[in-house]
Each structure stands twice: as structure tokens, then as C-alpha cells.
């Protein structure tokens, strides 16, 4: 029972944070709401026997990524905060119908889900979420995706430097 209570709290935090992210006007508040949603997802990871991923979620997502967002929002100042108006209005009715259709589709899909035991109590797990097991999985089975992510990070770093250089040149700097 305790696990279900923790799930309810984490799910409420994730959904509430998500609704706040897409509904508040100011990017600063949206980023703070995103911290709430990401922390709740980290709690969900803990419930799903994934302590290592939960730790990385807090460090990388709620730590590094959201702080980067907050830096950029602070750098942009008023213009970034005001931004453009939302795209609701003309298509509001169509959007509501679309969202309702999507929810109905998802509910039907979950209802027809043919996985044995998907609605039962989950079985107890081995040590699947430990750093040791994840490290073994990375090195033994997924060495190519592992190297590919390092290449991706390098490309992203180079791209960020080039973009910053171009932005400085457009202002007449070196």
C-alpha cells in the first residue's frame, strides 16, 4: 500500500508540474515547474527499482539541464520572458477534440493490453537497477550505442561553440 501512496504523490507531482510547464506564461516559472516534474519522475524511477537512473535524473536533468535553462532565461531578460503569445484561439475547439481523441485512444490501448500480469502486482526484481548491472550492460551488450553517445556529445559541444561564435560575429566581435 505504501508503494501506491508514493506512486500517487509522485504521479500528482509529475502531472501537476507538467500542466504548469505548458500553462504558465513566464519561462522562469515554467523552468521551476519543470524541476518539480523532473524530481517527481526521479521518485517514480526509485519506485521502479532504478536508483542509479533516479540519481542521474536528479544530477543531469534537475541539476545541469534546468540550471542551463535558468541561465539562458536570465541572460535573455525581458524579451525572452515576454516572448510570443500562445497559439490557442482559432483552433481551440479542434485542439480539445484532438486531445480527447488521444486520451480515448490511449485508454482503449491500455484496456486491450495483452501483456500477462501487466495489471497485477509486479514480481520482485533482481539487482537490475544497480550501477554494477548497468555498467555491465553498457560494456557487454551496448558498447556501440555507448560510443555513439560520446560522439553525439562531441558534436553537440562543437555545434554550441559554432553557434556562439556566429552570434558574437553578428554583433561585430571577433
Amino acid at each position: 500500500m505504501g508503494e501506491r501512496i508514493a506512486f500517487a504523490i509522485a504521479a500528482a507531482g509529475a502531472l501537476g508540474g507538467g500542466i504548469a510547464v505548458i500553462s504558465v506564461r513566464s519561462p522562469f516559472r515554467a523552468a521551476v515547474a519543470a524541476i518539480v516534474a523532473l524530481m517527481s519522475v526521479a521518485l517514480l524511477f526509485l519506485l521502479m527499482a532504478a536508483p542509479f537512473v533516479a540519481a542521474i535524473q536528479v544530477i543531469v536533468y534537475a541539476g545541469a539541464i534546468v540550471v542551463l535553462f535558468l541561465f539562458v532565461i536570465a541572460y535573455l531578460g525581458d524579451r525572452g520572458v515576454l516572448g510570443a503569445p500562445d497559439r490557442v484561439g482559432r483552433w481551440r475547439a479542434l485542439g480539445i477534440v484532438g486531445v480527447l481523441a488521444l486520451v480515448a485512444q490511449g485508454a482503449l490501448l491500455l484496456d486491450r493490453l495483452e501483456l500477462p500480469g501487466a495489471n497485477d502486482d509486479p514480481r520482485p526484481t533482481d539487482t537490475i537497477g544497480s550501477p554494477e548491472a548497468i555498467g555491465h550492460s553498457f560494456i557487454d551488450d551496448y558498447i556501440v550505442p555507448f560510443e555513439a553517445t560520446s560522439l553525439l556529445l562531441l558534436v553537440a559541444a562543437v555545434a554550441a561553440v559554432m553557434l556562439a561564435k556566429k552570434a558574437i560575429q553578428s554583433e561585430g566581435g571577433r
Binding site: 500500500m1 506512486f7 500480469g117 501487466a118
Partner: peptide
């Protein structure tokens, strides 16, 4: 009582 998979999927 644990939380079933379908809740997480929802």
C-alpha cells in the same frame, strides 16, 4: 502492494 505496469504506462 506494488504498482502494476499499466499504471506507469498510463
Amino acid at each position: 502492494m506494488g504498482v502494476p505496469l499499466s499504471w506507469y504506462l498510463a
